[in-house]
Design a protein around this nucleic acid. Sequence first.
RNA 1: UGGGGCGUAGCCAAAUGGUAAGGCACGGGACUUUGGUUCCCGCAUUUCCAGGUUCGAAUCCUGGCGCCCCAGCCA
Length: 562
Amino acid sequence: MTDNETSSTGNFIRQIISEDLKKNKNNGEVITRFPPEPNGYLHIGHAKSICLNFGLAKDNNGECHLRFDDTNPCKEDIEYVESIKNDVKWLGFDWGKHLYYSSDYFDKLYEYAIALIKSGKAYVCSLSGEEIREFRGTLKLPGKNSPYRSRTIEENLELFEKMRVGEFEDGTHVLRAKIDMSSPNLTMRDPTLYRIRRVTHHRTLNKWCIYPMYDFTHCLSDSIENITHSICTLEFENNRPLYDWVLDELKVKCHPQQIEFARLNLTNTIMSKRKLLQLVEEKYVSSWDDPRMPTLAGLRRRGFTPVAIRDFCERIGVAKADSEVNIALLEHCIREDLNKKAQRVMVVLKPLKVIIDNYPEDKVEEFEADNNPEDPSMGKRKVPFSKIIYIEKDDFMEDPPKKFFRLAPGREIRLKHAYYIKCESVVKDEKTGEIIELHCTYDPDTRGGWSNDGRKVRGTSHWVSASHGVLTEVRLYDHLLLDKSGDDKDFISLLNPDSLKVLNDAIAEPSIKEAKKDVPYQFLRQGYFCVDSIDSTSENLVFNRTVSLRDSWSKIAKAKKQ
RNA sequence: UGGGGCGUAGCCAAAUGGUAAGGCACGGGACUUUGGUUCCCGCAUUUCCAGGUUCGAAUCCUGGCGCCCCAGCCA
């Protein structure tokens, strides 16, 4: 990003903040927060929010808090808080000393609740859950007041205290705000503030058996932390009047401004935590960090970089219109980053044996190869060459169509870094007709892959010497969902059956033995790959395909078929 | 059908009354020892629709239409 771009108008939230700064609102401070609930792993949609909140703080000399919104112990788990901290750090953001938990505020929240009761703005309601729903009314019809709405302050105080000390069963009583049962905004129809849950909380353990609801907790937590801009997604727009109501009634010193933006939707995947959990629990994927998952853990294992993800979040923009970003943009971002960084190696994914008839039996030559043509500082390496090599099955066609300019009977191609070879004959399996091997001849005058006689060789293939090659496992990943939008209820039927293809007999050049985890590779002419962080060992190398290279031939081939 | 939002290209998204940025995708060309990268060129006579105000409207007004969110003791 250039200075030019940062100084442009930017998104509407940036504009609001710079207006506030101009007016010296909040004493010129910008304090934001990223408030995940620890009930699942972070995904790329959260990355948008993280980049927004931390980015806004950073660009305005402010601070951004990481706050776990842990008010529902039934769904939350310590495993998730660890993964979330790890993922935020990995993405490249630092909350410094500002790590908080809503549960840290349970005492204060309880005091606030009492204050609300004392001012006559909250009451203990003893309707059942079902009755509360009935009394709430509908979109068109106003609700009815709860018969418990007129309890005295003393009575409410006593009941609420009994709720706290555990005298009541789950679901028997709740604390409600006394607002307006006929409000056209359903969230204002005496919303529940506290409910009884006799479960152990992952941080407060058994100290509490009443837990505050989101609408009560969130605004007050923001206020306690002196948040200036509380940025959330569109579906909370209906809750904003309640956010403001609570803070106004309690007359708190700090009243943050809630601003809503559209959450990220991406084609060919799903972002719903519930659905992602379902994929994990029903074993459609191996785990939360399965490389097909849009989770940060999955993307990381897939080989995505924080740079690419941040760039993506920058490019998609921030607005209020519901939208769905094409996953091609994410793929563009990772290619752009990896092209600069990835070490090139030759790996034959689907090997086809080639015997070079006129090459001496036991001769071995070494060719020098650029590790990265985009970056000479990455140096060179040696690649051994011999009489028997493997090339990619897809690089040969017995009866090639017009625009195919790779190997075919009687045709010549260049072996990258090595020689020109010409296909002399094809050996097939007698029974199946399958091509088993190719016999070729090489031109000794083309050493290094070049000739001075002006010969035109359009095709260049990667290759691996058979006797030097290293067998590796390669996992080819593709979109999780076949169709663009996964919003359907029946998203399981949209799962791409080919989202993972495992190749067990890929053969790599010997330098692959030095492959390191966390280093990106480009398998020449194929795509970007990384060592699998979990399953790869020095004996059994396992690579994950991050993303394929752009492939204009496949487009031509596809067009021909149709 | 109550309330709250949102409609600018295939997908995102700028524009703040002065004559429709940018990116992705797509198409064409150049270059290329990766059919990669890079580089050029093209891609909205018009902003959901219809009226109106104005010298001038994506922006303002009126009226339609379409989509999203809300009836958890979830967040």
